[in-house]
Amino acid sequence: MLDNSPRAPNLPNAPGVGYKPQHFTDLRADPGPVRWIEVHAENYMGDGGRPLAQLRALADQFALSVHGVGLSIGGEAPLDRDHLARLKTLVGWSSPASFSEHLAWSTHGAEFLNDLLPLPYTSETLQRVADHIDQVQTALGRQMLLENPSSYLCFAESTWSETDFLAELVHRTGCGLLLDVNNVFISATNLGLSAESYIEAFPLHAVGEIHVGGHDEDTDDHGAPLLIDSHGKPVVDPVWSLLAFALAKSGPRPVLVEWDNDVPDWPVLRAEAERAALALAPAQ
């Protein structure tokens, strides 16, 4: 069992949802199978008001996952110490069962670009990311989970496969992983790889959480399918199948449904959580 939290128990092996403030009342009154929620860390770094009050109330009812989107762990530059300190404050008072971030970069110089940007997989970037993870885990005093990205392109200079790169990060830092099967499906489609082979090569023993979400469909210059990670639609059937495939290999894990854009009314998202519960049933 992973030890992702010094104070709170791990996330339950049950459905969770990405929390949206418009669901505050309905989610609490009618959670369905939802046992835990995930929030984007950066939205809870104000000094007070409704966001913090809601988070305190939700943490009484649900297990909590704090998911950072702004640390730029894959950045060439050193981590932003101020931001790390803010994370430490948030993780300190909200005592989440899990803290996770992305294998991506978003800060360059003094600019924050508000997107999860890709990095090449080389021995040099591996060491840099490992150093950043060490720094995060030391600052927060706990293990973190690192999420696999959704890819639209790849780097000619890469010498590691993504799965080997992630496995080596786990080995060097002791971090856990967040397996986003929607991202796996997107990357596999976009780069012409097998999603099943990716999951078979993934270090599943280190997975502390799984994500599913919706994506958009487009095409590239050559008419090849190009899937875009939009979190604005229901999870498609092939991604539910891939979730079942992953769970059959990994055993039960906390499964999160992400829906960040064009957010539907609560019953629609709850129905997605019910599908996640069904996917989890055979693995329990």
């Binding site: 790849c154 000619a156 012409g192 590239d220």
Partner: peptide, 12 residues
């Protein structure tokens, strides 16, 4: 920057 079949990423 490449697509999955070693051609330039272009509009991706």
């Amino acid at each position: 920057l490449l697509d999955g079949s070693d051609t330039p990423a272009g509009a991706r």
